[in-house]
Nucleic acid binder design. Structure first.
Length: 285
RNA sequence: CGCGGGGUGGAGGAGAGGUACCUCGGGAGGCUCAUAACCUCCAGACCCUGGUUCGAUUCCAGGCCCCGCAA
């Protein structure tokens, strides 16, 4: 197969994992489109996205448009002569005027078994809602979010002993599987021997948007559900509770926990203003 | 300069301008049928750079690093 000229749309680490898998298969984008640099961290330092860093390290041109509606984006893409779009966790809707550009169309890597868990956070929602097996889908983006026809699908089953998986672990696993799957089916897509199959609308489910407030948990609530929250909110927004310490109300982030004899055993925490420590140690102090 | 907390043995904490303390962990020995229990002993630490001082880990200034919020 001749590798077509590809524009890759992506933003966070998930995008980087997909890029890594594509690169390992010899598929490297001609141009990368990601979100603009944004202030991050305590000092609010202007920081590039993980995908932008990936592109910079390889000297691949990178666009960081605030909006895809701007004429210059369309012009740049046209000028780059791209023949295929690959989209993985870009974070913005791509206007159909742009999607119509490449001759081989656009393929979106979606880390769920569509039509299950459409929406913005399918991986974390799978953990939260106890959806195992989950999987990855390669689909053609359409106007409606994640409703496009599916080109390829692969189930990913997590062993019972590793479920619920930590969020970032599953992010990487599914993103890599998605990238690898895309790399495998790409030749057939290019040659036109692969057909996209419409999703069964009646079986569609939707991933709830995860908010910061959801991170606060009641440690006395259902242990299994709490464990799923702790694992699902890994990294962001983090599962936490408040407690009284030295006359102050402090926030305690739960880094990890496990289930022993049906009850939740918190193992690692980050108390506000402190470093990560054993929960046991935290209780002693 | 977005707001705030904090850097003391391996972990978590206390402390004082002059011998650095406690809990857990580690090592050795003892008690015990036995032990993660108990007793005895041992090793191991003040983030960096300046300043003040007879003397700074402690006070002051700057820096570096970590953490919660916010984004």
């Amino acid at each position: 197969m001749d590798i077509p000229r590809i524009a890759f749309f992506g933003t966070p680490d998930i995008g980087v994992y997909v890029l890594d898998e594509l690169e390992a298969a010899g598929i490297v984008p001609t141009i990368v489109i990601t979100n603009p640099d944004a202030p991050r961290g305590r000092k609010l330092v202007l920081t590039e996205t993980p995908v932008a860093a990936w592109a910079r390290e390889r000297g691949i041109p990178c666009l960081k448009p605030e909006s895809l509606d701007a004429d210059d984006v369309l012009a740049s893409l046209r000028k780059s002569g791209v023949e295929l779009f690959i989209i993985a966790a870009y974070g913005k809707r791509i206007p159909s005027a742009i999607l119509a550009l490449p001759r081989y169309g656009a393929l979106n890597v979606h880390p769920s078994l569509l039509p299950a868990l459409r929406g913005a956070s399918p991986i974390r929602s799978a953990i939260l809602e106890n959806v195992n097996p989950t999987g990855v889908s390669i689909m053609v983006p359409v106007e409606r979010m994640d409703a496009g026809p599916v080109v390829a699908r692969e189930e990913v089953r997590i062993p019972e002993s590793e479920w619920p998986t930590r969020g970032r672990t599953l992010d990487e696993l599914l993103a890599r599987r998605g990238g690898a799957l895309l790399a495998r089916i790409l030749p057939d897509w290019i040659s036109g021997t692969l057909t996209a199959e419409a999703q069964d609308e009646s079986r569609a489910t939707y991933a709830k948007k995860i908010t910061k407030e959801m991170g606060e948990i009641d440690v006395a609530a259902d242990p299994s559900e709490n464990l799923r929250k702790i694992r699902a909110f890994d990294g962001w927004p983090g599962a936490y509770f408040f407690t009284e310490k030295g006359g102050r109300r402090i926030r305690v982030k739960i880094v990890d926990a496990r289930l022993t004899d049906g009850s939740l055993v918190i193992t690692r925490v980050i108390p506000e203003g402190k470093q990560e420590m054993d929960y046991e140690t935290f209780l002693r102090s």
